[in-house]
């Protein structure tokens, strides 16, 4: 079954969507979209470094994404003009990554594959990494769910209950770096944030609790991954962008339905 590249692609898309869903909810609730961008763009630099030093691309992307996440967390805790700072970091990381990749003269690097994903070329080993990463993220988020929700609502409320909001933020940063490293093969560094926030935002109008929002987001993300793949095969469009376009269509539909229900 795994010999079929479409089956592997579908499984890869579902794994990435599953990991992205609960984390994407936190990205939306905590207004961390730019944070997601900075982390994801940094992964390109990680890819370039990994190829230069002949280590695994997953490891390189994970390490640099994690470093970027930690740097941004520390800087934005100190400085309240976080929006500008994050914009600078997000786009600089991308630019520096692309420049670094251009220095790799002795390695052939298909930049488009890392920028927009290459889900149709997912190998069995990639699948193992994607599902392993997804399982790790789901365990982390599941384990810290109550504490992270409390810290998201109000840091002082968390403190009074013996929860350290900074610790929860660090765990969130770690989980985000894993999702970036996992999803880079699926939708590419440029569209990872979309995979995080669009399913979560689409789920919002129909959710009454944080848990239903995360579950709905997972369902919407998986549906978008499958629909995007199908469209990609039928119309010969790039797979990563097709998945995000399918998610965007879902968002439009859910926003319209939400408005109708309220109105």
């Amino acid at each position: 079954m795994l010999d079929d590249f479409m089956v592997r692609a579908a499984l890869a898309g579902m794994g990435a969507a599953l990991a992205a869903a609960p984390l994407g909810c936190f990205v939306v609730w905590r207004r961390m979209a730019y944070f997601g961008d900075a982390t994801a763009h940094a992964a390109i630099l990680g890819v370039a470094l990994a190829l230069a030093f002949s280590i695994s691309v997953f490891t390189g992307a994970l390490a640099v994404a994690l470093l970027m996440g930690l740097a941004v967390t520390m800087l934005s805790a100190r400085d309240h003009a976080a929006d500008t700072l994050l914009g600078v970091m997000a786009h600089s990381a991308l630019a520096v990554g692309l420049v670094a990749a251009s220095f790799l003269t002795n390695v052939r690097i298909d930049l488009m594959a890392y920028l927009f994903g290459d889900i149709l070329a997912v190998s069995r080993a990639d699948l193992a990494v994607i599902w392993g990463g997804a399982a790790l993220v789901l365990c982390l988020v599941g384990w810290r769910w109550q504490a992270m929700l409390t810290a998201t609502l109000n840091p002082e409320l968390a403190r009074a209950a013996g929860i350290d909001p900074r610790r929860e933020q660090l765990i969130l940063t770690l989980a985000l770096a894993v999702v970036v490293a996992v999803a880079i093969k699926v939708v590419g560094a440029l569209l990872i944030t979309a995979l995080l926030i669009i399913p979560a935002a689409s789920a919002r109008p129909f959710a009454r609790t944080p848990e239903t929002m995360a579950l709905l987001a997972a369902g919407i993300g998986i549906a978008a991954a499958l629909a995007g793949l199908g469209a990609s095969v039928s119309f010969d469009t790039p797979a990563g962008p097709s998945i995000v376009a399918a998610a965007a269509a879902g968002f439009t539909l859910s926003t319209a339905l939400g408005a109708l229900r309220r109105g």
Binding site: W29, T150, N154, T209
Partner: peptide, 21 residues
Amino acid sequence: PQKLVLDRTLPMTVRRFLSLP
């Protein structure tokens, strides 16, 4: 707390809130 600014993107019933953390 002094005030709790609830982000509109976070769905939360009163009952669910009482179960935090």
